[in-house]
Design a protein around this nucleic acid. Sequence first.
RNA 1: GGGAGGGUACCCAAGUGGCUAAAGGGGGCAGACUGUAAAUCUGCUGGUUGACGCCUACGGUGGUUCGAAUCCACUCCCUCCCA
Length: 407
Amino acid sequence: MELYDELRARGLIAQVTDEEEIKELINNGKATFYIGFDPTADSLHVGHFMALSFMRRLQKAGNKPIALLGGGTTMIGDPSGRTDMRNMLTRETIEYNAARFKVQMEKFIDFSEDKALMINNADWLLELNYVNLLREIGACFSVNNMLRADCYKQRMERGLSFLEFNYMIMQSYDFLHLFREYNCVMQCGGDDQWSNILGGTELIRRKEGANAYGMTIQLLLTSDGKKMGKTQAGAVWLDPEKTSPYEFFQYWRNIDDSDVINCLKKLTDLSLDEISAMESWEGQKLNEAKEILAYRLTMLVHGEEEAEKALSAARALFQKGTLSENMPQTVLDKSNIPDEGIDIISLLVESGVCTSRSDARRQIQQNAISVDDEKIEDMELRYNVKELEEGIVIKKGKKTFMRVSIE
RNA sequence: GGGAGGGUACCCAAGUGGCUAAAGGGGGCAGACUGUAAAUCUGCUGGUUGACGCCUACGGUGGUUCGAAUCCACUCCCUCCCA
């Protein structure tokens, strides 16, 4: 199957500006294309992962990707798909985040031998001259059209600052710049970027009289239309310091039945044949598909070793009910343990199992806590150094396990 | 610049002097049921405490009052209408 059809079959393509041209372009590996990544946080998340995988698929077919770090655009803040204005980030924060992004992206895309480029739009956006920009670029944009753009619609009710209104112009300017400097003819991005991408192709048409293309990637949504890759605690990060490989694995292991196939298609490198074989799986059997999904993704993001660890930890804990070397653990400092031992409430908080002492009490009252398989009822319970040295396993509810030891 | 309406907990939203740590819904956590799923039912959901209590919290500051999310003054922010 050719690249374009494969992307379609996986449900990755949302919208394209010119299907025939794009097909021709990417199937033959002729395109230089870019995707922008705004460093609004200090780690990439699942949405970025999907974009990077998309990029990698195109790269494999011979196309040349440009990963564009949005050091400049993040100074503005993209209003697309947002109901509120973003917090304004300082330049220092943005630069720090961009550096983090860079490190992570290098793991996913092969930048060697000029096979891909990484560029930062701070290099040209930050030094733009206001009046010159207005005359050269601003004149090409119709405010009437911009206001009709989908990405602003939500914000027309709640308010849109002039700062954010300019985001589309900045992104369009990026595309023009890359077109001129690198012969970049196509921009890809999440489907929420459609308006911004069209802004760019239109600008190139006007300024250069040339055709440029745009293609958007289907957003990763749950079957009931919510964004995937979010938990109560926030995003599912790719940085193992922010979301451990075990947590990452568990996130995918626990997704809704109805989302499994979709995720396999969009996120993993399993072949469509392999995936379609799983489509008939039902009931208990579907858990196998979830496990495969979780394993593959953990492997792609954190490497095979971490994936193995997460898998065996999860299997041991949930299927056999036994303990595992690889389960999440917390090591406490021996010197912080009082002679009479640490009380269970403190232990639950220190180990991160509970968020506060009140929370810990509540959990115990609700019969949710067990230590080494013994339900805890006594809130006065204490553990001394000797007991902790051997390591204990705290369980909260059915899914939270934590080995606690000291050193 | 003029006029009108707003800002309440993670989110939406009720509350117009004490009965308000603040209704209701969503989300989240836990219990039951299950397949580490969904749906359903139940409990919990600011901090600290064994508990009484204490502390913090209704945009910000200052006031009135025995007592303020609620009244007053000033101030910041948002939306809408007119210019």
